[in-house]
Amino acid sequence: MAYKDYYNVLGVTRGASDADIKSAYRKLAKTYHPDKNQGDGKAADRFKEIGEAYAVLSDPEKRKLYDQFGHTGQVPPGYGDAGNFQGGDFAGFDPSQFSDFFQGLFGMGGRRGGGFQGGAGGFPGGGQQVNLDDLLGGIGGTQGRRFVQNVEGELQVTLQEAFAGSDEVINVDGKRLALRVPAGTRDGSRLRLAGQAPGGGDVLLTIRVLEDARFDLEGDDLVTTVDVPAPVAALGGPVTVPTLGGNVTLTVPPSSSGGRRMRLRGQGWPRRDGTRGDLYARLNLTVPRDLSDEERELYGKLRDLRS
């Protein structure tokens, strides 16, 4: 499986702080977001790759494993210097022999390009993750090999998909499985596909919601930044506000200052009782970069009046 340098993907150093990683992700995600690159397959792939990198580097435990094993190509603890599993009936076991098996069991599938792609138990490889311990925990012994009942993995969805709900397809042991991610799904939520794992066990999915550069989720509320031209902030007027349900128009009151938060009721995250939180539009005052002669004259008169 091809190795991905997630630090290089985000354009940060290995010693980057959490804030640096988040800042780099938000900048890149905003650039390559599908809404801004409709029909651009390369941008969509880049957006997915950025999300995969951030999902690993933003999680302290995953980043620790990645830093320990990912960039060196080493295998996790429990394997010998030559890649041999230590203990039991697995002496001499080479995990690389199972690469084709894992790729077939959790191979390419689904519109995201790979239900459960490799990368299990801290191995580099990207994509969705499979718990290697769960897979190997029931294999071995003198009476032959068997699979454990349940298989665990992760499924990444965008904030938009988690908000509205989405239909997904994953590939498990060569079988395509359809599932529905409910509207309002939170990061870390678990979905169970009963009886769909090899051996009749369950497939247990942990949902990972990718951050969206346009929005911050605070409890049941969403926060977004809206650019407001200085004259509109001073005199009041309409501005367009993005929401996860589509754009809406907000009337900015006169004498609004930068950083002010305005609430749009019921435009936030879906709740279980059918209601929704609110969306807060954070005003960001802007001035034109290139002024026309008339604008320059008017701004000059305003400056003189205020001096």
Score class of each variant (00 low, 15 high):
Arg271Lys: 14
Ser189Arg: 11
Gln74Cys: 02
Gly92His: 12
Asp18Asn: 15
Arg46Ser: 05
Ser255Glu: 13
Ser256Phe: 09
Ser256Asn: 07
Arg192Thr: 12
Ala2Asn: 00
Ala43Gln: 10
Phe85Pro: 00
Asp304Lys: 15
Leu285Gly: 08
Lys4His: 11
Leu105Pro: 05
Asp293Arg: 13
Arg26Pro: 03
Phe106Asn: 02
Gln129Asp: 08
Arg186Phe: 02
Met262Thr: 01
Tyr299Gly: 01
Leu155Asn: 11
Arg14Gln: 14
Gly88Thr: 01
Gly109Arg: 10
Thr31Phe: 13
Gly201Leu: 06
Arg176Ala: 12
Gly78Thr: 06
Arg303Thr: 12
Leu105Lys: 02
Gly80Leu: 05
Gly200Ile: 03
Ala43Trp: 08
Asp173Gly: 11
Leu177Phe: 02
Ala82Phe: 14
Gly104Asp: 00
Gly195Glu: 07
Gly87Trp: 06
Gly70Ile: 04
Ala213Gln: 11
Asn284Ile: 01
Gly237Trp: 08
Gly115Cys: 06
Glu161Arg: 12
Arg263Asn: 01
Pro60Glu: 12
Gly300Glu: 14
Leu136His: 04
Leu279Gln: 05
Phe101Ala: 02
Phe116Cys: 02
Ser58Ile: 08
Ser23Pro: 02
Gln103His: 10
Val12Phe: 02
Gly266Val: 04
Arg272Val: 03
Val223Ile: 14
Val172Met: 10
Gly246Trp: 02
Asp216Ser: 03
Thr240Lys: 08
Tyr79Ala: 01
Arg296Glu: 12
Pro34Phe: 03
Lys36Cys: 00
Leu204Ala: 00
Gln129Gly: 00
Asp35Trp: 13
Leu285His: 13
Gly83Ile: 01
Thr243Met: 03
Lys42Pro: 00
Val223Asp: 02
Thr249His: 10
Lys64Asp: 01
Arg190Gly: 04
Ala197Asp: 12
Val241Phe: 10
Ala194Tyr: 11
Phe101Tyr: 09
Tyr280Met: 00
Ala2Asp: 06
His71Ala: 00
Gly195Ala: 04
Val157Ala: 05
Gly122Gln: 11
Ser257Lys: 15
Gln117Pro: 05
Ala162His: 04
Ala213Met: 10
Gln103Thr: 09
Arg146Ser: 08
Arg63Tyr: 08
Val181Asp: 13
Phe69Gln: 14
Arg303Pro: 00
Gly199Glu: 04
Glu152Pro: 07
Pro288Val: 07
Leu235Arg: 14
Leu244Gln: 12
Leu285Thr: 13
Phe93Gly: 10
Pro270Gln: 09
Ala44Leu: 09
Thr142Trp: 10
Phe47Ala: 03
Thr185Asn: 10
Leu210Trp: 00
Gln160Pro: 00
Gln149His: 15
Leu217Glu: 11
Gln143Tyr: 12
Pro254Ala: 11
Ala233Met: 13
Thr72Lys: 14
Glu161Asp: 14
Thr251Arg: 13
Gly73Lys: 05
Leu155Thr: 11
Gly107Lys: 09
Leu291Ile: 08
Ala82Glu: 14
Phe147Met: 06
Asp45Tyr: 09
Pro124Arg: 13
Gly138Asn: 07
Leu159Thr: 10
Tyr54Lys: 07
Gln156Cys: 01
Leu135Met: 12
Ala53Met: 07
Ile21Arg: 06
Gly277Arg: 01
Arg192Val: 13
Lys48Tyr: 04
Gln86Tyr: 08
